[in-house]
Nucleic acid binder design. Structure first.
Lengths: 333, 333
DNA sequence: TTGAAAGCGCTACCAA
DNA sequence: TTGGTAGCGCTTTCAA
């Protein structure tokens, strides 16, 4: 391995001078600069970032903790994080935690030892202890999570209440009077509760007295498929189902299809998230779009600004959702 | 920030001794160890991995270059890489390249500077130059890619020829005589060519003279949807379509559905890959399953063994595919 | 404009 | 079993 020493020796200058030409940090005479550059070129010298990090105390490393990369929206956010991070010359250390607090704690500890300069937490079901641990490590951090509604930590949010309200309102305007909601977990994070509140508020405002919240027990496809039989049991009472995420909705739609029900003729189904898969189902899913890539991009940009000393970064960034009308809803009269 | 020096001072021993208790590298008397551990506990000292890396010349960093994390199978492989890597105490530096060679070159350079100990390349359409660059950096590496069929580089492979042959054979056994194939790109990587060869071999062996390869021009859903009209133009001649990946197949199925064709009654469609989404479509997609998570897991394990000096690691690991029978094929007579 | 040298936090060698 | 110290590859003062 060729080091700065070798380059200095080979070009007949001191290592300080080599350092200066590498970093353009101080004036170097043209002839010397040229010579050094030549040597660098010939030897293929590349500075060792580890050594550099040690003295500059900058690692340009940002840790990203996710629960499960298989979720397409998570992958989408990570893409945003990675791409924008690279623009600012930061690198991403990826950590998957599979909803396990202990794993998250280990990742945090590891990121601390690796001198990560910031931490991004993406996902559901993060514990308050994690927040404490991040603070303990005194790291800049930013969150995108449904469970922590804490204005003391920096995070990116979406107004789930408004989104849910708007979606419910849409169903009502389409003539639906019996609208059910499928939630994920019983012990809801606050943003999930916001969605339910938005749903209920729209019902109330329109003096609809039917209201029903099913709990799927999970967020994935199969939970939607499994909870569907409970929905079917009440199918006579229900004209539309609002699922708290698209995977649940797709599971539900498929169960209905597999059991001879027609969506949207028999029941309308809407989702939330605008996951990639929501265009793959038939009927295509009417849903709320959250800008996952942008969430990742904004998260890391805000984080980097903070790392680089910008005190004016907002601690909470709200990003807009949008309503995506597709084919899974039918008008009722 | 508390350093090893602080711990040494506070516990009244030398930094060597502290180092020994941290690393369990040499015997330390019980009392001293206890004292040091106490101080570590009180101060919350955590060794700085950057400094450690500099002297040990070990970074425990592995770079993973992917093209696009949005592909669910890529995310799945990265999961395998990440999870198994963590088991061996390695960390993952994630780089997305979006099929851009220049970006890949930059990533490689960056990984080199960060002293990554190994590199995993996942994806399609990698250039030979990339391979050269990796060699130039003298890094351990392992590939999972369709384009490089080069036994001089370590890689994980699937016998695509056999898989394709088996799938085509299955269609033939179900009575299909007019089977078309949808490929991705015109300038095919070698593994893609293997699939086409497998398809053609099965046709030939069964003395079927209809053979047709459509070129979608891409690998994503929309390419499947778009190429579908060409398929429909020949629909009278075709009883089954074999798509080189599931996304293409899903796009095709949806186009057919949207245009009033029934799968599998009018045409059978099969895919390749067993992407998560292949269970979400209706009819569910008959396909070939490739063990993506395992591919990631095996890749990194092999890489780590090599990094740690095991010379006996096979340079090419073949992993088995499996045939997944679902509902998108109908028997013909 | 250049060079010498200190030092980042740690490991590992050598001596005691 | 312990401590002192060199040195990993680099940046950054300070002096020249």
């Amino acid at each position: 391995m060729v080091t700065i020493k070798d380059v200095a020796r080979l070009s007949g200058v001191s290592i300080s001078t080599v350092s200066r030409v590498i970093n353009d940090s101080k004036p170097v005479s043209p002839e010397i600069r040229k010579k050094v550059l030549e040597v660098i070129d010939e030897t293929g010298y590349r500075p060792n970032d580890v050594a550099r990090s040690l003295v500059t105390r900058r690692s340009y490393l940002i840790g990203v903790i996710v629960n499960d990369l298989s979720n397409t929206y998570v992958a989408e956010m990570v893409k945003g994080v990675e791409e924008v991070g690279k623009m600012y010359n930061y690198d991403i250390l990826l950590c998957s935690s599979y909803y396990d607090k202990e794993a998250q704690m280990n990742h945090l500890s590891l990121l601390n030892r690796k001198q990560a300069e910031g931490i991004i937490l993406i996902g559901y079901r993060f514990d308050e202890e994690i927040v404490e641990k991040v603070n303990e490590y005194n790291k800049n951090s930013i969150y995108f999570t449904r469970d922590i509604k804490n204005d003391k930590i920096d995070h990116v949010k979406i107004d789930s209440h408004a989104a849910s309200y708007e979606m419910t309102k849409y169903l009502i305007n389409e003539g639906h009077k019996k609208i059910a909601f499928i939630s994920d977990f019983e012990d809801r994070g606050s943003y999930e509760q916001d969605k339910i509140d938005g749903y209920k508020e729209a019902l109330k405002e329109n003096e609809l007295d039917y209201s029903r919240v099913f709990v799927a027990g999970g967020r994935r496809y199969n939970f939607g498929y499994d909870i569907a039989h409970e929905v079917v049991a009440e199918i006579e009472n229900i004209t539309a189902v609002f699922c708290t995420n698209d995977e649940l909705a797709i599971g539900l739609i498929n169960y209905l299809f597999d059991n001879g029900y027609k969506v949207p003729d028999d029941v309308s189904v809407v989702g939330y998230g605008n996951y990639k898969e929501s265009q793959y189902v038939r009927p295509t899913l009417t849903t709320i779009s959250e800008p996952y890539y942008d969430i990742g991009a904004v998260s890391i940009r805000t984080l980097i600004k903070k790392i680089e000393g910008d005190k004016d970064q907002p601690s909470v960034v709200e990003l807009p959702f949008s309503f995506i009308k597709r084919d899974s809803v039918k008008k009722r009269d």
